[in-house]
Design a protein around this nucleic acid. Structure first.
Lengths: 229, 229
DNA sequence: TGGAAAAAATGACCAATATCATATTTCAAA
DNA sequence: TTTGAAATATGATATTGGTCATTTTTTCCA
């Protein structure tokens, strides 16, 4: 259970911050940010922002996980990214000055801070390291999305599932993957039924272990060879 | 036919530049860039850079068109983007400091200038407008790629073809689309045969007109309604 | 300008995966 | 602990779109 009061979250001690884009801030900047941020406790399935709305700032995840998705024509979600503690979300649309094209929603209870647009842009102006870090991050994500597109376009659902699980392995680290079958299907880009059948195959092939919702990967090598990496 | 000698291309008169990310440069900066750029004439099907190699700078397209693609496991190309006069290519990987994940290759004869990495980064440091323009551009492209992913994941090939043609309409403007069936298939993410069959359907439905290679869109509305926008 | 090579087109067939229907399990609230 | 709803699972079936084989057309260049 997370601490529901947020008065204890301070930027200077935030574990996520240090390894994030905001790791380069000096003490003054951290203090300034700390004074200007607002922290919130989010329950599971709460949204940070909605597709179509205008960005007012950025969100820093102190604890928890957030799915970033788009809704297709029939309302089916396509998950684009899953963000975890230490990551910032919502800044891409803020820079592009267009409404959000994606929705961000917690996958579990989370502590998330908010920094207003002007405060954040000022920090960027004053801090070349932060600025360059952001440019680098945006560029990396573009490269990742190119891979994502090629995978979607050219690979079978089975291969895409393997690829997605490798991504999830990175996100969940030692923890078992804890996503609904539907979310998983919406990340892979397939029907929930197809996903369930493939999970069964993977289980029978000794690639994963399943405990209802939680999926542990027990044969990484096989996963990599299926994904074709 | 393009002028094969490049001595006539100067940044100050470059038509593409003015509407590009480099439109904000002051006279001094333009002169500096002009002194440090190298221009080249490229034939059709020549590459600017290859997947896996390290970026040394950025390319500015003065005239012509360039396809940006990734090669999937069986060597099949997935086109991610088509860049035209006025666009810069190659800077995304340069920022992320990882090798190119994509290959850039001319679709037709082109005049393209090159600016070295250090020169370009210095220009960026000195010019906040340029810097912010690039951040904005990267963010916009991220948003576009999210759409691309959702389309790939959730739409039929027919819908994706319509969507792709809308993108191409933007690129080719008044000109008819001039791409091989294979390139078109590799942009849509389908087999060449499937693409050819769908083009035939579109022709019979009065959406496009085809003159061997060149495709003109004669019913935009229908295209939009198929793409679901 | 002819001829070879590349590109485009067409047909037949099949596999992958979506869809729809229904059953079973899990979970959380009363 | 029960119970109802949501999530997961399974089966049957339909369909899209990929593959392979072949033909026709276009392009390019010697």
């Amino acid at each position: 259970m997370l601490e529901k009061s947020h008065k204890y979250i301070t930027c200077s001690t935030c574990v996520g911050r240090k390894s994030s884009l905001l790791g380069s801030l000096c003490e003054d900047e951290i203090d300034h940010m700390n004074d200007h941020k607002a922290c919130n406790y989010y329950k599971k399935h709460q949204s940070l922002f909605l597709e179509g709305s205008f960005p007012r700032g950025v969100f820093c995840i102190n604890a928890g996980m957030v799915k970033i998705f788009q809704r297709g024509d029939e309302g089916k979600e396509q998950i684009i990214h899953i963000a975890k503690a230490g990551e910032m979300v919502g800044f891409r649309s803020m820079f592009s000055e267009i409404p959000y094209k994606v929705t961000a929603e917690t996958l579990e209870e989370s502590n998330i801070c908010f920094i207003g647009k002007d405060d954040f842009l000022n920090m960027m102006d004053a801090n070349p390291v932060l600025r360059n870090g952001i440019i680098k991050e945006l560029s990396r994500e573009l490269a990742d999305r190119a891979d994502f597109i090629t995978n979607m376009a050219q690979k079978s659902v089975r291969e895409r599932l393997a690829f997605t699980m490798i991504i999830l392995l990175d996100i969940y680290e030692k923890e078992p993957i804890n996503l609904s079958r539907e979310d998983l299907a919406n990340f892979v880009g397939t029907a929930t039924e197809t996903l369930i059948r493939l999970l069964k195959d993977f289980k029978e092939e000794g690639i994963i272990e399943v405990q209802t919702r939680k999926i542990s990967i027990i044969n990484k090598e096989k996963l990599f060879s299926i994904a074709g990496k």
